[in-house]
Design a protein around this nucleic acid. Sequence first.
DNA 1: GGAAATTTGTACGTATGTATC
DNA 2: GGATACATACGTACAAATTTC
Lengths: 255, 255
Amino acid sequence: MTGSKSLPHQTAPKQTIQRQTGVALWRQIADRIRVAISDGIYDATGMVPPEAVLAAEFEVNRHTVRSALAALAQEGIVRAVQGRGTLIERRDRITFPISKRTRFTPGIGDQARILEGLLLESAHEPATLELAAHLKLKPGEKVIRMEGLRKADGQPVSRSTSWFPAKRFTGIDDAYRATGSVTAAFAACGLADYLRIKTEVSAVHADPSDRQELGLSPGAIVLVTKALNADPDGVPVQYAVTRFPADRVQFTIEN
Amino acid sequence: MTGSKSLPHQTAPKQTIQRQTGVALWRQIADRIRVAISDGIYDATGMVPPEAVLAAEFEVNRHTVRSALAALAQEGIVRAVQGRGTLIERRDRITFPISKRTRFTPGIGDQARILEGLLLESAHEPATLELAAHLKLKPGEKVIRMEGLRKADGQPVSRSTSWFPAKRFTGIDDAYRATGSVTAAFAACGLADYLRIKTEVSAVHADPSDRQELGLSPGAIVLVTKALNADPDGVPVQYAVTRFPADRVQFTIEN
DNA sequence: GGAAATTTGTACGTATGTATC
DNA sequence: GGATACATACGTACAAATTTC
């Protein structure tokens, strides 16, 4: 960031991309445009700049830009209309608040119209060593594992694997299936309140199951949280690993 | 996540990757191995499995695995030795705590031996509309912008752009240059304590300047935080946008 | 110490994908 | 759309270094 920010050129600002790096130019360009749309750069017109302009900005052939836009169209982010241009179909990046009282439904608030919580699968299993340490159980004690998918306005926004102590929360999977809410499911098991003790955040490339379950394209990024919830007495009640599509989700930590 | 987790095969577990997606197979494989190393999957041997085994796991030609390992060797993560195998050189993922009292140096604690904070550049500028809103200044009021780079054990771990109200914190850039610590620089300007008000976290692909400044390979991920610090009375004192290499850094939020 | 097995390094040929003009 | 250049990926074969027995 020493130079490169005050070149008095009259042409469009060149956007650097790298060649021969294992990532095709069209995919690098698609990723950049996706972020630009998320950041609202093109909100004034509701459209992506013309292919020729983008080609000049990235210093590539127009065909390469077309490949990038085709990929974004495939994701449903833009729609090309002959003679008019490339229209932006959606630019939603949902903000998840993380705090002592992290909750999904009220956290999203009015950022989406329709919220869904789906239980994909649940099972009773013995706790692994690592999981037992998190939940303060004896290794091998039974836990309930729940695989969940959350959607906002029909778009997948998170894919989670949660574990609960089986003895204390018998039937929590059925309660979650019925309500689509962890808070409601806890309440059904007699736990009125719970607190977020700890959250770890990292980011990795989407693996094939992420791509399938969250509807992502290859090379996409997923934000990963590993979270521990406890009852008001500090006894662990839930450990969860959740994967969020980074192009649609960000976090905010309010202290 | 429905099946695929309890196949009693005697062969290595197949790892799915996708073809013809704009991301080269060798890069997908390199990214997966990098994460596996970070997660300590190969700690038992201190080595990556033989090329032939990886080739079978990913169902690719051995040459493709070799390209992936060559990229990781280039990053200094592994080192291949003829006849022995491919040794893991480093598997460092630093955890940054985010809390009301987020500080860099004590936060890293004993996770690294050598910590450096470099001031790349500083300047006095009028505040933009957005920045003025964050810092509760009038648009156009002067701010001090500081471009910083932090290293742990010689490896870049963060690249930040910070803004401070210029009137209140005259000379903070010199104080930071001298001490390499924001806390110390604040203290030099008469501010003994400050609190983290808000942190936004997102993740994007590394752009060319990230790659250069953080020493990343193309397709790599950067975690982006946008943070606001305030004095004990709640008056904003610093707004900062920081970019972290996601393969070396994760966050933990303790409530 | 020596032979066999294991593992990485090198070479050549072929087919397909990517990007330019 | 067609021609060209280069990157990617596969297949095979063998050389070189190290470990194992």
